[in-house]
Design a protein around this nucleic acid. Structure first.
Lengths: 145, 145
DNA sequence: ATACTATTTCGTAATCTTACGAAATGGCGA
DNA sequence: TCGCCATTTCGTAAGATTACGAAATAGTAT
């Protein structure tokens, strides 16, 4: 069944209109990520994360690519999606949660997936100074103010 | 209580992410309208329309201006809102419902509010050739295809 | 004031969303 | 082949959204 343009736009905006999904989109703007990396940051059950990512895929905002044992998600690379994401809100650079997420994503990109998954996605168990520092910075952003 | 930027963006997109509210936004892009004019087009209970418009106001997409007995709603006039609406979706010109709404809005703008309200917002009772033609055109758009 | 009427607020019922854990799936390496 | 593990699917319970009518509100005109 094919949706009208109106229904399609509603679907897209519904996908965006959830705090966790919006965080995921913004994280993916930093870099493509696999499900477990996203899980390590947003801290929800794996099944929940999978369902959110599925919404974003259905909405045509995200695509997946199987990478061995993992699935890599990335933002759809087209002008409509870019325009939409750019229009969402200027000023996210100043949102504490969004900034904290970006800091963690940057640090996570330097950790092999095997290592991240071996600690059950618990970043505090990762023996890596860069991650520990990122965690502290993220924590500080979220508690102060 | 003041929302974070993230929560604010979610609120805005939730407001957009409903077929009737999106239609309202697109109708208001044609012209400012009062609640009863919107009601005559979308055909929902007045209380429901009021609630939808209230969401749009809270989301900062629409403003109201009391005009005597009626309340005139219009799109917020700032660049962020314009950018967002422009980005929502190219191609709404081809959506049957959106086109039908625009046709009705254009016709309605020529009918005094007193007259529209006197027939209980039932456009078919309006003795105006222009409205009758618009209704036919709108109907045709929605049934064919 | 009083009646009138567009709009809002409120309570309610139906429907949709969300998060979870448990079980199913699918790809990799032993 | 077999087990392992990231991801998905499914059932379920809690919570949010939606539409409605009835009653409240607010602003006009008589």
């Amino acid at each position: 069944m094919t949706l009208t343009r109106l229904a399609r736009a509603v679907q897209t905006h519904k996908a965006i209109a959830h705090p966790v999904r919006l965080r995921m989109l913004l994280m993916l703007r930093e870099s493509p990520l696999c499900g477990c990396q996203i899980g390590a940051v947003v801290k929800l059950a794996a099944s929940t994360i999978s369902e959110h990512l599925s919404e974003l895929k259905k909405a045509g905002l995200v695509v997946e690519k199987k990478e061995g044992r993992w699935v890599e998600y990335s933002l759809v690379d087209d002008t409509a999606t870019e325009t939409l994401l750019a229009a969402i809100s200027p000023g996210f650079e100043r949102d504490a949660t969004v900034r904290a997420d970006a800091i963690l994503v940057k640090a996570l990109k330097r950790v092999p997936l095997e290592e991240l998954c071996s600690v059950d996605l618990d970043l505090t168990q990762l023996e890596r100074p860069a991650v520990a520092t990122a965690l502290e910075r993220a924590e500080r952003l979220l508690t102060e103010r």
